[in-house]
Design a protein around this nucleic acid. Sequence first.
DNA 1: AGGGTATGGTAAT
DNA 2: TTACCCTACCCTC
Length: 274
Amino acid sequence: MPEGHTIHRLARDHTRDLAKQSLAVSSPQGRAVQAAAALDGGAIEKVDAYGKHLLYRWSTGDTLHVHLGLYGTFRRLPSPPPEPRGALRLRLQGEQFTADLRGPIACELLEAPREELLLARLGPDPLRRDGDPERFAANLRRRRLPIGAALMDQAVIAGVGNVYRAEVLLIAGIDPRRPARDLSAGEMRAVWDISKRLLTAGVKANRIVTRPREAGRKSRVPRREAVYVYRREACARCGGPVERYELAARTMYACPACQPAATADSPSRALSPP
DNA sequence: AGGGTATGGTAAT
DNA sequence: TTACCCTACCCTC
């Protein structure tokens, strides 16, 4: 779940549910006791999202940095919440709602210099107003690695993960193994625009949905039916077999028919937007 | 009910 | 390159 869409959705929800009120902050698991003690009784001004990173801005001037990693999850409970159970890393208890954080890779106070370092190594984020497609293109031109690997590099583009990279490249009709810098300017722009569109839809739906729902289909379909290639046997666009292989230490899913290797004679072509 | 797997990144090796 | 975090989900039984 935690690609950029999840993070931006949490920033929005937590700003709505928890900001501008006194919060009881605790760390029952004991691994963020110091941060909890510093923040307890304080108030959040707003929550910012950069790629897959959450920054909670407290009225004291403190910034709490949270990164969910692969397992991390926030659960929203009505206040007052039940007694904490298990490995509960952080609990933010507000007047009406409580947010419980489990399994994050990062949950720490972030001093200004370290925040600068963190943001400096993030590429443009399509979900942010300041996300700049020209910066993205410049990042790609600088890299010889495959486009499927470049999209996983948070310094190239922030917020895209393993599901979105597969889906974006399928829709763009681009073979993931093509060197990033070999993409045409139009292809680079298409990859950015499709990423932005899919991530934005993900924030709204609060899940990854890259494929239009079939007419008359029930409103909530299994993930398998909400995507074109990720973890599928057959491509949802053409019905052909989906290829899977390791790329950037993760499993890549691609349709060889919809994502042909480009040649000088026949550059790969993008799908018309669904 | 229970087992296998992973939407991510860091630190150790 | 590998171990790890140790949750939620999906699948099978």
